[in-house]
Design a protein around this nucleic acid. Structure first.
Length: 302
DNA sequence: CACTTGACCTGTCCGC
DNA sequence: TGCGGACAGGTCAAGT
């Protein structure tokens, strides 16, 4: 489930290796994954990567000829980069902390879950893997990027300068009846948070997931603002969260789970008060919280 | 508008 | 050991 820190880690990795590289071959084995807009040439071979950017959880590969490739990894998408291998090939098998092998990385690429492959002029390659096939690669003209529905409706970027405490305060007050968990998951409210970092942010701010935005006082709104930024920055610093299929472009893991406050820590002691972390379902998603630090609203039932 | 549910997918895990 | 089903969660469309 790549969220903002994971996508940002991937973006940084790609930005170190791709700019200036010309694509000599692009192959797609699962047609639905590659979605060229009707008004663009579908051929990627010949295009050169200019830069790599990100908006929310959406990765943007900026190409020459005024084209942009939008990549959404959804839950299980991976982008793996390989330098040309002189002679033989094959890396060692990567294993997660829990001992579970990462399903789609390690050994030969392309694998059975590789759905698109870029080959560059120098022989280096970029593989798009996606176990559950929810992700996509959309090719659009630069000037049309802002009209792509998901881009057009994105809320503010939580780590950009424009996202101020004052702005967030106003946003929360405008959505006073919304519950915090579904609200923070809403990409049109704020872009980039997913299940992991919503739970982490709410715990750090000591706010229950079912609290209504309008029930927060000024100090709590401020605490939530700080918590969101703090959690995202911390995760980016350690390369994101690898609890399942997420890996960096070199097949490495993100270390955020080691310092996670509540996510995937059901039954483990709260880092603040040692109370056992609980799990509930909110908005159809597993929600982790500390029942002591995050006290439920007065009227818990919706 | 606020929110939920189901669909899209496939691998893992749990209970029997 | 094998099997069925729940579960994982980002986004969108449809429903309450």
């Amino acid at each position: 489930m790549p969220e903002l820190p994971e996508v940002e880690t991937i973006r940084t990795g790609l930005a170190e290796v791709l700019p200036g590289k010309r694509i000599t071959k692009f192959s797609v084995s699962l047609k639905k994954m590659f979605q060229p807009a009707p008004n663009v040439p579908k051929r990627l071979a010949g295009r050169t990567v200019e830069s790599v950017s990100r908006r929310g959880k959406l990765l943007m590969i900026n190409l020459d000829h005024d084209l942009t490739l939008l990549i959404h990894l959804k839950m299980t998408g991976q982008l793996i980069y390989r330098e040309p291998v002189p002679g033989k090939d094959q890396g060692t098998k990567l294993v997660l902390a829990g001992g579970h092998p990462i399903p789609t990385v390690g050994g030969a690429l392309p694998s059975k879950v590789t759905h698109a492959t870029f080959t560059f002029y120098d022989g280096s390659q970029l593989f798009y893997n996606d176990l559950r096939q929810f992700g996509y690669l959309k090719l659009v003209r630069d000037e049309d990027v802002r009209f792509v529905p998901i881009v057009a409706t994105f809320g503010p970027e939580p780590l950009e300068r424009g996202f101020t405490a004052k702005k967030f305060d106003e946003m929360l007050r405008r959505r006073s009846t919304a519950k915090l968990k579904p609200l923070l998951l809403d990409q049109t409210f704020i872009a980039g948070l997913g299940n992991i970092y919503v739970d982490e942010s709410l715990n750090l701010a000591k706010l229950h997931p079912l609290r209504r935005a309008g029930s927060l006082n000024a100090a709590q709104r401020r605490a939530l603002y700080q918590a969101i930024k703090s959690v995202l920055r911390k995760s980016i610093k350690v390369g994101g969260t690898s609890d399942n299929t997420y890996v960096t472009i070199h097949g490495g893991r993100g270390d955020y789970l080691r310092v996670a406050r509540v996510y995937h820590r059901t039954g483990e002691p709260c880092r603040a008060c040692r109370t056992s972390i609980k799990r509930m379902v909110v908005a159809g998603r597993g929600t982790h919280y500390c029942p002591r630090c995050q006290r439920p609203p007065k009227t818990p039932k919706s």
